[in-house]
Nucleic acid binder design. Structure first.
Length: 329
DNA sequence: AAGGCGGGCAACCGCCCCACT
DNA sequence: AAGTGGGGCGGTTGCCCGCCT
């Protein structure tokens, strides 16, 4: 692959067409002049962005190859499409992936694997590329830290039974903090169901490949389940559509909920629980218990504000467990 | 202060599917 | 039925930038 790019977009630049403004005219002449038909490659210039935006505003999307020609862009149709969908589209949401979004990504990836576009459909304003990058840079990083394969059962179980509950806990903590800061009364025992309808397109999550409960039960307050202002890009974001739950079961499949001991915690997870407890609802029902768990529980951490969901002890212990399990396998 | 290093992310590639002829 | 083009998707690349030494 030839990506002979002499300059790149400015990181975190807003979609305000300033992404490549720092590239000089001299550089522009040298950047990405393709062999065929003078097709350009590499970073987009402000002028190119404006051309694309204006053309789409007038004529709409689609027929990208002819669009590129008609708009006077020396780009492939694919390049135009990608630029529009991932960057210029007005409803594209930028910025950090929120905890709620992380939770959705982890859950949906556990169901569908690397179906990034499918996952992105359920995250308003997020692109498949962004989710893919998040997965590769953040999630795979943790797998690397644990010296295990990101697709291994161990890592998946760890995500499901450690990482995701911890996310739930942190979401609860953030919600509670926000609510108390705003003086809003919060009943933390009130749970909510995130079901298939919480997504933007109002399509059920179930596409037939799951055949199990569709309710993702989040034990977080009904209040303020939505995003922060800066990332609530659309009024249709799922956070605003979380509905109260009325049919929660009290089933708890998770031994650690009653035994915070780390050894029994993880070992319980190793005896095939993923086969018997794969229901998302059961998983999130576990989350119900987490709200009452001791914040000093080493496995759940103290809800630190950092992005890292693992502490050193977590990683060391899990590495140990992985090594043991691989020996026994 | 300077160089090295790795994470983050925009952009590209190749493959595949589907609609149309 | 076969050919073709458009579009979608997952994987990969490589530059920028911030952190670390």
């Amino acid at each position: 692959m030839s990506m002979d790019v002499k300059a790149r977009n400015v990181k975190n630049s807003p979609p305000s067409l300033s992404s490549t403004a720092q590239i000089s005219d001299d550089d522009q002449d040298e950047i990405m002049v393709g062999d065929d038909d003078d097709l350009r490659r590499g970073p987009w210039t402000v002028e190119e962005d404006l051309k694309l935006i204006n053309y789409i505003a007038t004529h709409g999307e689609g027929r990208w190859n002819s669009l590129a020609r008609s708009a006077g862009l020396k780009r492939t149709g694919k390049s135009c499409r990608l630029r529009w969908l991932n960057y210029l589209r007005p409803d594209v949401r930028r910025g950090n992936i929120t905890l709620e979004e992380q939770l959705v990504i982890l859950e949906l990836h556990s169901r569908w694997g690397n179906r990034w576009s499918k996952i992105a459909q359920h995250l308003p304003g997020r692109t498949d590329n962004e989710i893919k990058n998040y997965w590769r840079t953040r999630v795979q990083k943790h797998a690397k830290q644990l010296k295990c394969d990101v697709n291994s059962k161990q890592f998946k179980d760890t995500m499901k039974y450690l990482w995701m509950p911890r996310l739930v806990e942190r979401i609860q903590a953030a919600n509670a903090a926000a609510a108390s800061a705003s003086g809003t009364a919060v009943n933390t025992t009130v749970s909510t169901v995130i079901n298939g309808n919480f997504m933007t397109n109002h399509q059920p999550i179930n596409n037939g490949d799951m055949g199990r409960s569709q309710n993702l039960v989040l034990s977080q307050p009904r209040v303020n389940c939505s995003y922060t202002p800066e990332n609530s890009g659309t009024s249709d974001s799922f956070g605003a559509q979380v509905s109260p739950v009325s049919d929660l079961t009290n089933e708890c499949y998770f031994p650690v909920n009653h035994n915070p001991n780390a050894d029994s915690y993880f070992q319980a997870g190793q005896i095939g629980f993923s086969d018997s407890i794969t229901s998302p609802s059961s998983y999130f029902n576990q989350g119900l218990e987490f709200q009452g768990m001791d914040q000093n529980n080493p496995w759940l951490g103290g809800g630190d504000a950092s992005d890292n969901l693992w502490n050193i002890e977590d990683i060391c212990f899990l590495q140990q467990q992985f090594n043991n399990s691989s020996i026994n396998m």
